[in-house]
């Protein structure tokens, strides 16, 4: 059985190249506490990692381990309690055009057409209308939505909406694209299409991507490295180099490297000894006082 640490010379070479590039994002001793009426929650504790230019890093971890908190801090939407976040060596203070964000719920502006949504960023940065229009058209072509330029978001399918959201973020030419479970709400087929679409876009741009997911296959398929977080408090468990060579294809999921990586991630996220997230969760799961909604006579098992 191969190990996830075994890498072919090409893959080793590729990682060496990546590490030679400058670190575009640096997270140092990052901590985050939420103070609420019910008390304090430590969402993140002493997170350290760096992401290099044009790297694609996925973040996985159990629910509630602080993935969204982390990415929102990186986006500047949430304040940090301790430590520092540096983009291009400069500390982050508030949202900025150098970091684009794609949300799980699309969050397109419903009152703007598809093109209007994509034009929003350029208009905010002071581009005149016709220039913004041109930029938007170019991006809509890139994500294959030219035909829907004048449609409203509610007239689109989930996959199309997420493509608009990606175009809207990328038209601003950010250095880093932050994505919080962007494909979580899509069906399996659309999701697979969007994954290869994202890889296509990423290949052709000078962009660094930080991608949150709870789908292990998605993480392995997309990522150069995978940041595994553990919960309560959220801490870095491991930062794994994915040994699957590029270019990636869906067929690779049967290869030895892929399966070894998957097995390793599996063992990190669902450790062998039965242990659910919080003590309370464990208690609930342990007692298993789930109410039966079916009639006993129509036994399904």
């Amino acid at each position: 059985m191969t190990d996830h640490l075994q890498q072919t010379p090409e893959v080793k070479e590729r990682f060496a190249q990546i590490y030679e590039r400058e670190a575009i994002l640096e997270v140092q001793h990052l901590g985050k506490r939420y103070v609420t009426a019910k008390g304090e929650t430590e969402a993140l504790r002493d997170i350290n990692f760096r992401v290099h230019r044009r790297e694609l890093v996925c973040v996985i971890g159990p629910s509630g381990c602080g993935k969204s908190t982390l990415i929102r801090i990186l986006a500047g939407l949430e304040s940090l309690s301790s430590g520092a976040v540096l983009v291009d060596g400069k500390p982050v203070s508030g949202p900025g055009r150098d970091r684009g964000m794609v949300f799980q719920g699309y969050s397109l502006f419903p009152w703007l057409t598809v093109k209007g949504n994509v034009m929003f960023g350029p208009e905010m940065s002071g581009h005149p209308h016709n220039i913004a229009d041109g930029m938007a058209r170019q991006w809509l072509e890139l994500v294959g939505l030219t035909k829907f330029a004048d449609a409203y978001p509610h007239e689109l399918s989930g996959g199309m909406r997420q493509r608009v959201a990606i175009a809207r973020a990328l038209v601003n030419e950010p250095r880093i694209l932050l994505m919080d479970e962007p494909f979580g709400a899509l069906d399996a087929q659309t999701r697979a299409k969007m994954q290869s679409h994202l890889l296509d876009i990423w290949k052709n741009l000078d962009i660094t991507i930080l991608f949150i997911t709870h789908d292990l296959d998605e993480a392995i398929y997309l990522a150069d490295r995978i940041l595994v977080l553990k919960a309560h408090p959220g801490e870095v468990q491991e930062l794994i180099e994915v040994p699957v060579p590029r270019p990636r294809t869906p067929g690779q999921s049967m290869t030895a490297e892929f399966r070894a990586t998957r097995a390793h991630l599996e063992s990190l996220i669902h450790p062998p000894e039965v242990e659910a997230g919080t003590p309370e969760e464990a208690a609930v799961l342990g007692q298993s006082h789930m109410i039966r909604f079916t009639n006993v006579t129509d036994n399904v098992e």
Binding site: A75, G76, L77, G94, P95, G96, R97, R99, G100, M101, F103, G105, S107, L108, F109, F120, G121, M124, S125, R168, A169, N172
Partner: peptide, 18 residues
Amino acid sequence: LEATLIEAARTLGTRGVR
């Protein structure tokens, strides 16, 4: 109003009165 709409706008460079 959905908070993420405002957040999305902020990540796209909107601030202040706009």
